[in-house]
């Protein structure tokens, strides 16, 4: 397991509404949120955290077009340059017959490309173990985390106070 050398102070909330309120309060207090961990996608969290829209779908389009060109270009090359054969009296370059395979390759390239990109940019994959803060984040707890490297006790106490006053049911510290 890799370590990130991060000292983390985090609060666990029992409900996504509490979490959203806490995130908004933290923004108002100009606190620097490290990350938020939830058991399921919480809507409204992305704008609150200022997360930019994902560009995964643009990558997907590029992968898909690559598939389109690969499939269509390859079949064209084979039947017009490499080994032209007449099937059923049709022209060598019988475009309508190429549509199904071109379509399938578009989908295949887009899907594989996007999935691989997703795992890569998230730092995930087979055999990867990323440090987690608490076992119930994937169950029913909503976690708001602050990084506390280099902070003095006073600053940390301020964050602790913020977490407990914003309805966090548990507050913990952990090094990951």
């Amino acid at each position: 397991m890799k370590t990130l050398n991060k000292e983390v102070l985090f609060g666990l909330y029992d409900d996504e509404t509490d979490l959203l309120n806490a995130v908004n309060a933290a923004n108002k207090a100009h606190l620097d949120i490290m990350d938020v961990y939830t058991p399921f996608p919480v809507h409204g969290l992305d704008p609150a955290l200022g997360l930019a829209e994902s560009r995964l779908h643009i990558a997907g389009f590029v992968y898909g077009m690559t598939g389109t060109l690969t499939g269509f270009g390859f079949m064209t090359w084979v039947f017009t340059r490499d080994w032209p054969i007449i099937f059923g009296g049709k022209p060598y370059w019988s475009v309508p017959a190429f549509i199904p395979v071109t379509f399938e390759l578009t989908v295949l390239f887009a899907a594989i490309g996007m999935v691989v990109t997703f795992y890569t940019i998230c730092g995930m994959g087979p055999g990867v173990t990323n440090p987690t803060l608490h076992d119930r984040i994937t169950d029913d707890k909503f976690c708001l985390a602050f990084q506390t490297n280099g902070m003095d006790a006073e600053e940390i106490n301020k964050l602790k106070n913020f977490l407990s006053t914003s309805n966090a049911s548990e507050v913990h510290q952990k090094n990951i």
Binding site: D35, V36, Y37, T38, P39, F40, P41, V42, L45, D46, L49, L51, S54, L56, H57, G60, G64, F103, E104, T106, V107, A110, A111, M114, V115, F118, Y119, I121, C122, G123, M124, G125, P126, V128, T129, N130, P131, T132, I137, T138, C143
Partner: peptide
């Protein structure tokens, strides 16, 4: 695969699901 439940990961996960759904429908 090292899933943590980070907000950004969920965002990307939802995008991925949506686009995969979009291309799986004609598929």
């Amino acid at each position: 695969f090292g899933w943590t439940g980070s907000a950004k990961h969920w965002q990307r996960w939802e995008y991925l699901s949506l686009v995969l759904a979009g291309i799986s429908t004609p598929l």
